Amino acid sequence: MFVPIPILIAAGVLILVLIAMIARAGRRRDPLMGGAPPRAYRGTNPVPVATLPPEVERQVRAQLAAGRKIQAIKIARDATHLGLKETKDLVEALERRAP
């Protein structure tokens, strides 16, 4: 079966255009590729400090008092299984709140 070359070229260009449109649509939704973050992450929902168990809170406060904020975030993240930003906000709120 013989297919003329212009038809093959047109089909190839059409396929490339469709692939480019699909890739571009996916990029708009992906925050890592420069798109807007999903609605769940747009607002800042403060995490209550009471979510940390008392023993973990003492450990976090001790690390903060020693000036080791990153270690305090690691301890809190291991205990709460929250994301990095949420845990950082939690530790900063704990840091601002007086003991």
Rank of each mutant, 00 (worst) to 15 (best):
M1P: 14
M1Y: 13
F2A: 14
V3F: 09
P4N: 13
I5L: 10
I5Q: 08
P6S: 09
A10T: 10
G12Y: 03
G12N: 09
G12K: 07
V13N: 03
I15M: 05
I15W: 07
L16A: 15
V17Y: 02
V17A: 14
L18T: 11
I19H: 02
A20C: 04
A20K: 05
M21R: 09
I22H: 04
A23P: 04
A25C: 04
A25L: 14
A25V: 14
A25W: 12
G26T: 05
G26H: 05
R27I: 08
R27K: 13
R29P: 03
P31V: 06
L32N: 15
M33E: 13
G34C: 10
G34W: 10
G34P: 13
G34Y: 10
G35F: 07
A36M: 08
P37N: 03
P38V: 00
P38W: 04
P38C: 00
P38L: 03
A40S: 07
A40C: 00
A40V: 10
G43R: 06
G43A: 08
T44Q: 11
N45P: 01
N45G: 00
N45S: 01
V47K: 11
V47D: 01
V49E: 05
T51K: 15
L52K: 12
P53D: 15
P54W: 00
P54Q: 05
P54V: 09
P54M: 02
V56I: 13
E57C: 09
Q59V: 00
V60R: 07
R61K: 11
A62H: 07
G67C: 06
R68M: 04
R68L: 02
K69C: 02
K69R: 12
I70W: 01
I70E: 01
A72Q: 03
A72I: 03
K74Y: 09
I75H: 05
R77D: 07
D78V: 06
A79Y: 14
T80Y: 03
T80Q: 08
H81I: 03
L82Y: 10
L82R: 06
L82Q: 09
L82H: 07
G83H: 06
G83M: 10
L84E: 14
L84D: 12
L84A: 15
E86I: 02
E86A: 15
E86R: 14
E86H: 07
T87A: 06
K88M: 15
K88A: 15
D89G: 15
D89W: 04
E92C: 01
E92H: 02
R97V: 05
A98G: 05
A98S: 12
P99T: 00
